Simulated scan of single mutants.
Amino acid sequence: MQDWTIVIPVKGAAVASKSRFGPGDHRDLALAMALDTVEAALAVAPVIVVTVEGAEFQSLGARVVQERGTDLNEAIEQGLAETSGNTAVLLGDHPALLPEELRAALMDATAHPLAMVADHDGSGTALVTALAGERHRLAFGVDSRAAHLANGYTELTGPWPGLTRDIDVPDHLDGLRLGQRTRDFLGKPQF
């Protein structure tokens, strides 16, 4: 789907620590999940990763934009500034994402100037899209689903469990068909 560019923010140590996972350093797990997310997205369209360090993402074929600042929405805007045409924003914690799910969601999104996919629990946002000529009205953060709807995004739904399941707590990893790097990190057998 060369008519889309996907921006994926991977925000340094603050996100990488995954503090809701409990005490300890969870950077390696967060990186594994982000790499699985980026790899799945690259099977669909070109990807721009906004991050502090990015050699691992470049090795997969993603373009890296160096993150400046601390706000997630600002980081996303940095990536969007490097795009033209149809754009999608996907957060980097979707290690069960399948390319066919993302492809289907983007196909559905072509019918709407602005569209979004809510996360599994229904309060957050997994994906936002804007067609060429439309400007994103980003509202990632607490209760982002409601905020994106209020900003004019049309909600899309479909059989996309890997797209909707972002990983915020350890239990979210249970029962998923995870990407290879996340499986390797967790020592889980392939589903």
Rank of each mutant, 00 (worst) to 15 (best):
A14G: 09
L91K: 01
F57M: 04
D3W: 01
G85I: 05
L176R: 14
P23C: 00
H26E: 07
E56Q: 14
N73P: 05
M116I: 05
L156V: 13
I76P: 08
W4M: 06
G152T: 03
L98Y: 01
M1Y: 08
D28K: 14
S144V: 02
L60S: 09
R145G: 02
A16M: 06
H172L: 02
Q2E: 13
D36T: 15
A111L: 13
V128P: 08
H136Y: 04
I167D: 00
E39C: 04
G61R: 08
D119V: 12
R63P: 00
P161F: 11
S123K: 07
R68D: 10
A109P: 03
S84G: 11
A34N: 04
Q78I: 06
V52D: 15
E77K: 14
R27L: 07
S123W: 14
P161Y: 10
R183G: 05
R27T: 13
D184C: 04
V52T: 13
G79P: 12
R68S: 12
V15W: 09
L173H: 12
P23I: 07
T182A: 05
A34P: 09
G12F: 03
W160N: 03
A45C: 04
A62V: 12
V52L: 13
L114V: 07
R135N: 11
E74A: 15
R68F: 07
H26W: 14
